[in-house]
Computed example of a mutant assay.
Amino acid sequence: MATLSRLLFRTFCTSLATTTTTTTTTTTTPTMNSIVDKLFKERNLTKLAENFKKSSESYRFRCKHRIYQVTVRRLASANRLSLIEDILEAQKKYSDISTEGFAIRLISLYGESGMFDHARKLFDELPSLRCRRTVKSFNALLNACVDSKKFDHVERVFGEMPSELSVDPDVYSFNIMIRAFCEMGSLDSAVLMLDEMGKKGVEPNLISFNTLLCGFYDSARFDQCEKVWILMEKSNVKPDIRSYNAKLRGLVAVGKISEAVELVEELGSGEIKPDIHSFNALIKGFCKDGNLEEAKRVYDDLLKKDCVPIRSTFEALVPSLCENGDLDLAFKLCKDSMSRRCMLDARVLQGAVDGLVEKSKVEEAEKLVELARANSYSRSSVKMPS
C-alpha cells in the first residue's frame, strides 16, 4: 500500500509539474517544478511534511487539491498520523481557511485518514476562524465520520448537528447516512432513510438507490433488491451501469455466473453498455469457478470493446494464471499493468516472479523484478527468490 501511495504521489506530481501554467513570468514554472520535484523525491516522511508546509505558503500550491490528497494518503498508509495533523493544522494560518471549500478539504482529509476527532475539532473551530458553516461543511463532517468508521457517532451527528447549525439536511446528507447504515450492515435502517427523506421533502436520487442496491446485493438479499428497483422506477430515477454492476457482483458472489453473463449480454445490446467493472465481475466469477479459459475470453472481449483494464482486472487474472501454470500470459499481463500505470499489489507481482522461477523462466522473472524497481516497488517487496 505504501509503495502504491508513493507511486501515485510521484505520478501526480510529475503531471502537475508538466502542466503548470507559464502565463505569468518565465520563472514561475521552474519554481513550481522545483517545489514538486523536491516533494516527490523525498523519502523521509518527516522531511516530506516539513517541505509540504513550506510549499503551502504559495497560494497556487494551496489551490492544488490533489497534491494535498496524495500527500495525506501517503502519510496515512505509513500510519504517520501525527505528521498529517502537523501539515493540516498548519493550514489554519492562511486566509483560505475562512473559505468553506478549503475547510471542507481539510475536514475530508482528516476523515479519509480515520482521524474523526480532528475533523470534528476543526469543524467546531470554523466560526472562530471566520468560516461560515453550511450544510456543505456539515456533510463533510458527516462523511468524515463514516470514512473514519465511527459508526457509533454517525446517528448523533446527523440527529443533533442540523438543529445546532440551523441547516436542513439535503440529499447528500441522507445519502451519507444510507451509506453508513449499509456499511454497518443495518440495511433495513438504510431503507428507512427513504421515508425520512420523504418527510423532509427531499427526493432520493440515483446515488441513493445505487447505494442501497450495492448494500442488498452484497448481502445476497435479492428479494429486497427487487423492491429497490421498483422504488427507483416509482421515483422516476433511471438506473445506470453502476446499478447493474451492483447486480452483477451480487450474482457472481452467489455463484450465478450464467445469469451474470446473460445480464452483460443484455446490456451489450441495450442503451446502457457494460464497462470495465462489468467485465471484471465476470472475470472474478470465472476465476473463482476455476474456469480460466472463460476468464481469458472475457479479457480478450473487453479489449475488443475498447475497455481499458484497471488494477483489479489484472489482480483477478494474474494469480489464477500463475496457479494454472499459464506463466507466459501472467508475465505479459504484469508487464502490461505497469505500462498502463496500474500498479499491482506487490504480493501479486511476487507470486508471478516465484512462478516464473519455478518454471525455469528466470530471464522473465528478472525482467519483472527490474520493471518493479523502475516503478518504485521496494527491493524487499518484489525480489528474486533466494
Rank of each mutant, 00 (worst) to 15 (best):
A2E: 05
R6M: 01
S15T: 09
T24H: 10
T26K: 04
T27C: 02
T27E: 13
T31P: 07
T31A: 15
N33Q: 07
K38I: 08
L39V: 04
L39R: 03
K41D: 08
E42C: 11
E42H: 03
K47E: 15
F52D: 07
K54Y: 08
C63L: 12
Y68A: 06
R73K: 12
E85V: 04
D86S: 09
L88H: 01
E89P: 05
E89M: 06
K93L: 07
K93Y: 01
S95D: 06
S98D: 14
F102Q: 04
F102S: 03
A103K: 01
R105A: 04
L106D: 05
E112H: 09
S113A: 09
G114V: 02
M115A: 04
F123D: 00
E125D: 15
N143D: 15
C145E: 13
C145F: 14
V146G: 11
V146Q: 14
V146W: 15
V146P: 14
D152W: 08
D152E: 14
R156C: 02
G159S: 15
G159M: 11
G159A: 13
P162Q: 15
P162F: 14
P162M: 14
S163E: 11
E164F: 11
L165C: 12
V171A: 14
V171W: 08
M177D: 11
A180Y: 08
M184W: 02
M184Q: 10
G185F: 00
L187P: 04
S189A: 05
V191H: 05
M197G: 04
G198E: 09
G198S: 11
G201Y: 03
L206I: 15
I207Q: 12
S208R: 01
N210W: 02
L213C: 02
G215D: 03
S219Y: 03
Q224S: 11
E226W: 13
M232R: 05
K234I: 13
K238S: 15
I241P: 00
R242M: 12
Y244L: 12
Y244Q: 07
A246P: 10
L248R: 06
G250M: 15
L251V: 10
L251G: 04
L251H: 10
V252H: 00
G255H: 02
G255E: 08
I257F: 04
G270P: 10
K273G: 00
P274V: 09
N280F: 05
C287N: 09
G290M: 10
N291Q: 07
E293T: 04
A295N: 03
R297M: 06
L302W: 07
D306A: 06
V308R: 03
P309T: 01
R311W: 00
S312E: 14
A316P: 00
A316N: 06
S320V: 10
E323S: 05
G325T: 09
G325N: 04
D326F: 05
S337M: 02
M338N: 09
S339P: 00
C342W: 07
M343N: 14
R347M: 13
K359V: 06
S360M: 02
E364S: 10
E366T: 14
V369C: 06
E370G: 08
A372G: 08
A374G: 05
N375L: 11
N375D: 09
S376H: 12
S376G: 06
S380C: 10
S386G: 12
